[in-house]
Design a binder for these strands. Structure first.
Lengths: 317, 317
DNA sequence: TATATTTGTGTAATTAGTTACATAATTAAT
DNA sequence: ATTAATTATGTAACTAATTACACAAATATA
């Protein structure tokens, strides 16, 4: 079973599970070593109650990090075995106040020896090891609270996927993709307008020949995202960022951001000073992408598109 | 939930379980991040099969450290989902040969990215921590294999209990205990003989007045073990170790060993050179205790006891 | 060669937790 | 003073593993 060495760090979950199981099994046998008839799984609850205090089910659950139904079941078992007594709180009818019975308190005294023996045995192991499992677990708890494993994996996924994405200049053979990708989201959220057809059907004459440009994002050599830069005849703005579209199938690869960055670089290289865009606030991911790229909201301007309800600009530096 | 800090090292089992759960939960979500429709719990099995080999259920179970019913169930699920194909081994009708289907092999290729991302994320965490969880788990696995947690706890228990045991010289008030403890084991394994009654009923006149002595082990001031040293009229031996008895209720506290050691010390102090004892081989714990005390088996000598079928001696140095 | 043991597998029951849902009691908000 | 939201609890169903048991096939043994 050198499985784990073959698989590597990725299997840390499985490995943790197996160690947990080994320790857990022995815990059950250790409880049998002492006269007290406690079940190992009762231990955390028992520990909270051992000084004689009264607690509610949920406060115990919070304290020991279990779900409340788990504590509820454990308490039911301990009551049945005579270790615990329940009583309704007079001032709050929901609360089930739980405390140790005389038998439970007696067990609490007897169990001290077991605590000492187990603690000593665990500390013996920790002393024999070079790497401190206790502290390592503590650190993992902290680090995972700061940023979950899921989020860390997502970040690595994004970076890796980003590297597979290529941003290339528009060529006539991407015309179909340019139209299809844009039509997909426009007709999903709104409906295609006259201006859309003009721009999408005649990208070369309407956009490129007018001093604009288009960038295409390739993933496995497939066009999965597009973005256009339109030359504006306006004293305030040089270019408009428009027709940004990313295939839903290629989400989570940072493609929108990569396209946006690239188009901004192009605009700078062309000597632009200020970019303009218009969009709609129901497209939340798009708006937040524009923010991430540095665009800020500006007051209303007339727009040829019915669907536009927000305008933004970006000062190029 | 500073529960674990309050409880201390003893709670390492619970703490392990919770970390395992946290990691496990995220693992499930991570699998959803990728298009492959694999369940996290399939992972170890899938990993073994991924290179296209054929395996039996039990060989997979051995490799990944699961029970075979667990693998059996996982395989059944993977078959149902089309990732795995089963076929009976022609030369051995018991064997169910298992391998990845075309769909499974396809998933094996796709999953490589996920492996990389997860490995990187885990290594990122390990790099951020001062204490290496991976190596710490590895060490615990090794240390627990050498000596289980159960055995370690048992040892600590024994030491602690030993300290509660007091070995004191015989007094007339222990006469009842001396008789009862011996009668208990004699009548359990054999039956009381004439010589037993004589010695047990008249400990003072038969043992002490003849130049022998008796030691009593007290636990919580209760006599729980006894052992006698009888003066022998023999050119080869000075004393016989006899009437050693420990209450079954006081097992596991090392009492037999403590009594034996003490009686040997007494024999030395009295100027003895060689001890003798007789016993029966069906009393295995007793025989192994005598070995531990240094006694060695000798060739047969006549004995007044029917039940004696082994003789041992100890040279005092 | 007959018989006993070992090996491979599957099914059923158990375990220690979880989520999902229901409901009553209390507290907050309009 | 209602109504809405929150809190405390319990029940039911699920999960991912385990042990216990059954049984057939293969191998070892007398």
């Amino acid at each position: 079973m050198d499985f784990f060495n073959k698989v590597g760090k990725m299997a840390i979950g499985s490995r943790l599970r197996m160690l947990t199981e080994t320790v857990g099994e022995d815990a059950a046998r250790i409880y049998n070593l002492y006269q007290i008839n406690l079940q190992p799984k009762w231990f955390p609850v028992f520990y909270v109650l051992q000084d004689g205090g009264e607690f509610t089910i949920t406060s115990i659950a919070r304290e020991i990090g279990h779900s409340h139904p788990s504590v509820s079941k454990i308490i039911a078992e301990m009551v049945k075995n005579g270790f615990v007594i329940e009583k309704k709180d007079k001032t709050d009818g929901r609360r089930n106040m739980v405390s140790l019975s005389a038998k439970g308190l007696d067990a609490a005294v007897k169990i001290r020896d077991q605590y000492a023996d187990v603690t000593n045995a665990v500390e013996e192991i920790l002393a024999q090891a070079n790497h401190d499992l206790w502290k390592a677990i503590e650190e993992w708890e902290y680090l995972l609270e700061q940023k979950s494993l899921l989020r860390r994996v997502q970040e690595h996924q994004k970076i890796r996927e980003s590297n597979k994405v290529q941003i290339v200049p528009y060529e006539p053979r991407y015309n179909a993709a340019f139209k299809a990708l844009n039509e997909e989201w426009i007709s999903k959220y709104f409906k295609m307008e006259e201006a859309d057809y003009k721009a999408l059907d005649n990208a070369d004459s309407y956009i490129i020949d007018n001093g604009g440009l288009i960038l295409v994002a390739l993933y496995n050599d497939e066009p999965v995202g597009v973005c256009a830069l339109l030359k504006m005849n306006d004293p305030d703005y040089d270019y408009e960022l428009a027709k940004m579209a990313v295939s839903p199938k290629a989400q989570g690869k940072n493609i929108g951001f990569l396209l946006g960055q690239a188009i901004i670089e192009k605009a700078k290289a062309l000597g632009g000073h200020k970019l303009y865009l218009e969009s709609n606030t129901i497209l939340k991911p798009a708006i937040s992408l524009y923010h991430k790229l540095g665009f800020v909201k500006i007051a209303g301007r007339p727009s040829p598109y019915e669907r536009a309800n927000i305008q933004m600009e970006l000062e190029l530096k």
